[in-house]
Nucleic acid binder design. Structure first.
Length: 230
DNA sequence: GCGACAG
DNA sequence: ATCTTGTCGC
């Protein structure tokens, strides 16, 4: 059956039962960290995904891969994964290196049904994943302290009086707006935040996201100006 | 019913 | 996400 915005929510509820939340994940500074991101050209119906593997100890680029596809799903808040994941999976498949821990541009558990992009990608690939988003989406938080490393809980208070912690607002640079970290698959929140801080030593956003973002934008620009596609 | 709402 | 130049500051 084709996935539509109507049945996508039910699919999320089903896939959510496969998320693993009781593993700490790889310790910071070891193995590989892979950033994934996507860029769109809606007018030309094009989508380009990028996967960039970094050495966790040095943050040096180990390998890059991209994939191009057609836009198959509209942007619907809460259903972002269905729009982004097909092309992201293609890009990951083109990697030779072990992706290690995957860092997504968006949410994991911080999602209306606790199954954001990072959770979805983790379940589909089996890889440890977490998400780092630029906005708090529908959640609330008290501003963390002003220094790099300060954080506060990201709260879902949409329920019946409950205030579930779904992630963290994490300050990655002194005096700069925090990023919003949440667990995807097979990683603890503490560990995800530790990785994020290491990856964001020079900028607000983690190096994984910055690298993947610039790569898919670059490729999309080339594809749009008539370069041969694959 | 209407508006808000990751990217 | 995307549309978009110069400009302020380290």
């Amino acid at each position: 059956m084709k996935i539509t915005p109507e049945n996508a929510r039910a699919l999320q509820d089903e896939l959510r039962t496969r998320v693993v939340l009781d593993e700490p994940g790889p310790p910071p500074g070891t193995g590989h960290l892979t950033g994934v991101d996507v860029a769109y050209d809606d007018a030309r119906d094009l989508v380009v995904a990028a996967a960039v593997v970094l050495d966790a100890a040095t943050l040096a680029v180990v390998e890059e891969a991209t994939a191009t596809g057609r836009v198959r799903f509209p942007y619907v808040p809460g259903l972002l994964a269905f729009r982004e994941i097909p092309t992201v999976l293609d890009a990951l498949d083109r990697l030779t290196a072990d992706p290690g821990l995957v860092v997504c541009d968006g949410y994991g558990r911080a999602h209306p049904r606790r199954f954001g992009l990072a959770s979805h990608l983790g379940v589909l690939t089996g890889l440890p994943t977490f998400g780092v988003a630029k906005n708090p989406f529908v959640f609330s938080y008290d501003p963390p302290g002003p220094r790099r490393g300060d954080f506060s809980p990201l709260i879902d208070d949409s329920g019946n009086g409950d205030r579930t912690e779904v992630g963290r607002a994490l300050r990655t640079q002194d005096g700069v707006k925090p990023v919003f970290v949440s667990v995807g698959h097979r990683v603890s929140l503490d560990n995800a935040c530790a990785h994020t801080l290491r990856l964001a030593s020079a900028h607000r956003q983690p190096e994984t996201t910055r690298r993947a973002d610039s790569l898919c934008r670059r490729v999309l620009a080339n594809e749009s100006e008539g370069a041969p596609r694959n």
